[in-house]
Design a binder for these strands. Sequence first.
DNA 1: AGAGACCTTAAGCTAATCTTAAAAAGTACT
DNA 2: AGTACTTTTTAAGATTAGCTTAAGGTCTCT
Lengths: 225, 225
Amino acid sequence: MRILLVEDEPKTLQAIQQGLEESHFEVDVAYDGLIAKRLATKNSYSVIITDVILPGLNGFELIKQLRTQGITTPVLLLTALGEVEDKVSGFDAGADQYLTKPFQFSELLARVRALAKRTTAVGMTAQTLSYAGLEMNLDAKQVKREGKSIELTAREFALLEFLIRNQGRVLSKMEIAEHVWDQNFDSNTNVVEVYINYLRKKIDKDFSRKLIHTQFGMGYVLREE
Amino acid sequence: MRILLVEDEPKTLQAIQQGLEESHFEVDVAYDGLIAKRLATKNSYSVIITDVILPGLNGFELIKQLRTQGITTPVLLLTALGEVEDKVSGFDAGADQYLTKPFQFSELLARVRALAKRTTAVGMTAQTLSYAGLEMNLDAKQVKREGKSIELTAREFALLEFLIRNQGRVLSKMEIAEHVWDQNFDSNTNVVEVYINYLRKKIDKDFSRKLIHTQFGMGYVLREE
DNA sequence: AGAGACCTTAAGCTAATCTTAAAAAGTACT
DNA sequence: AGTACTTTTTAAGATTAGCTTAAGGTCTCT
């Protein structure tokens, strides 16, 4: 049972992490919203626990961005006293549970267990994405098109995953670079183009019905036409 | 999601702008009330964030004048400590939310999101614009008229988006040039005319009911007649 | 009718994208 | 640690889309 814990206050972070590990959870930690987002996008967690106030990207933003990427991992949001009015926007963003600081650790544990249960009950059905005959198994990191299996490198896989999660949406090179590569991105590079090219060779070349399309001056889309 | 940020203190302005842009908002800035008013009149924003103390036209005045022009864009007013008694007159003027400096950026972001949601809830679905049988999907970057799909280049798309967002308003060539092209714009060119022409060919040519109209000596409008 | 505003076209130019190859970085195995 | 291999990144040339300009024609207003 793997948990992502996001908190910028070192003492709090340490305390919660230790408590969870003692209860036999595997815990990954992040002290900043952007790192959290990268982790949550790459790995699959049973539960994400996050503070609201964070550097980089706050808790609300984090949840929202994950949700738009199709990541449905249950989120437990930690709020400080006095941030209560923001609950509404938090639920809007897609949070599942709230816990107001300060709290008893046992209370946190109870909620985490409840949320984790939901995951195994509903979600654990082999993490896979698919679109137009294209299938991605996120656990096995395997890709198939029309049943024919395709070997991708890690980067290629990440890029395709981003495309498939945003099927039909035109993604600018900047957006792609920020998601598949890093945040602070040097714009004087053509990695994205090169990798789009790699993916095309592996995914579209042998099929008449192309899925990856260039929208000149705008970006790239995954779609049938 | 476009935001107008009005603040005369350069450092504060810069900080907020950057934060918002990192959260994927498009941000226009103004350092003075009169410029703000012009921008808010010309463009359609999801939210306006404005300081109270401003050169030219203060925050209250700004809101009031916009409201009398029928502009209902939600406004988040930034007040310094000690200006609290002014809240009353602020709400009177038509402000929607207050934030007292200093504040956590995340708090600002939460309120902006809440206000922005109101906009999209009432009007357009944010990723879709439509007018008189014309539909623009801003995510897929696709355009249809009466169900028939139309291919536009990036520039054409931006121009049409500007027109549709200002449906019924006559837009001068200067206004169009500044928004769809660049700020510091060479006025000795006819790009706008050329692109209006391109759009007409793609959008109006095959339909008897024209949408793009020339207002001689004034500019162009998108409207049915 | 004349002047200025606007429309239309096409050619040259700019900039975005594709493609390839090679350098650099990372991994695995001995 | 060294070697062989894979993957990622960088760089450069070729290609193509689309932007801009300019020039001549048409329309609108007085």
